[in-house]
Design a binder for these strands. Structure first.
Lengths: 157, 157
DNA sequence: TATTGTTATACTCTATAACTATA
DNA sequence: TATAGTTATAGAGTATAACAATA
């Protein structure tokens, strides 16, 4: 039976939720992430931050003098991928690369006043939009979801 | 205070879980998805299926004679992106594009015997690996997680 | 020898716009 | 006019490998 035949017989029968993929955690994670990701892009707009740039700035603000290697490890990405991100933040005047007296290989990252202000504004905006997007779920649902997602991350620690 | 100062004082204080990002659903979805995605790639190996190719084959097997437009809609991607996916499945002899008598614009997609067999094997493998990966969570936790992830998708329906 | 930051490079995923043939 | 499939193209995002400077 084709999906169109199913649909013409009984709309419920072809519900997206009845297929194999819907039982896979990976598939459902991807679909949910796509929705949150699109909302993030709408939220921060054209000249805002890409998700990973926002994440990097967030950690630089919260952990002053963090190095790029530490930052890459915390974000779960490669060191090489961080260069362009920090370049962008530096060009916009949000982050500085500072020399470290003890070790001339590393450069300590520090958010500027502008960087901190931009971050706080972006964070508030993202949180508000996320809350609005998920307003059909209870705060308890969202907390449960966050707990379960963090539990998945225990795997690679 | 720098993260290294924090670490030298009190390892708990710099726990990854204590920063702003950990409260964002989008960030946690991304991190969890990266873990599941890497597991998927390990599972299906070099000459296996990419996630989206697997997903497409899954729906073609389950909904014989589905069209590419229907498939794209179900997968939440653009029609244009599906061409290469179906090309690949067709070249490997897993899927056929068949003409439809009533409408010469559309091509009905049908899985071959090889395609069905390859899909069943891949599905069993993915499910087994996913179960193993998430073995530190209870079946109830996983069910709860799936329910909450599907709830997020209600947004765009 | 190992590590930090960096560059070059390539590959995957995806969207947009335009085209064609059909309806 | 609208739709199905297709092509071309471009832009994210990311990983790998190699390199120079430094430890």
């Amino acid at each position: 039976m084709t999906i169109r035949q199913k649909l013409s017989m009984d709309p419920q029968a072809a519900d997206v939720r009845t297929n194999d993929l819907e039982d896979l955690v990976g598939y459902n994670l991807k679909r949910a992430y796509v929705i949150l990701s699109a909302d993030f892009k709408r939220t921060l707009g054209e000249d805002g931050f890409a998700p990973r740039v926002f994440s990097a700035l967030s950690l630089i603000v919260q952990y002053p003098d963090i190095t790029q290697s530490e930052l890459a490890r915390m974000l779960g990405i490669e060191r090489s991928g961080l260069v362009a991100i920090v370049d962008q933040l530096e060009q916009r005047g949000f982050v500085q690369r500072n020399a470290v007296p003890g070790d001339r290989r590393v450069q300590a990252l520090m958010a500027t006043g502008d960087g901190c202000a931009a971050y706080e504004q972006a964070r508030a905006s993202v949180e508000a939009h996320e809350e609005k997007l998920l307003s059909h779920m209870t705060p308890r649902d969202v907390e449960t979801l966050l707990g379960l997602l963090r539990k998945i991350r225990e795997i690679e620690e």
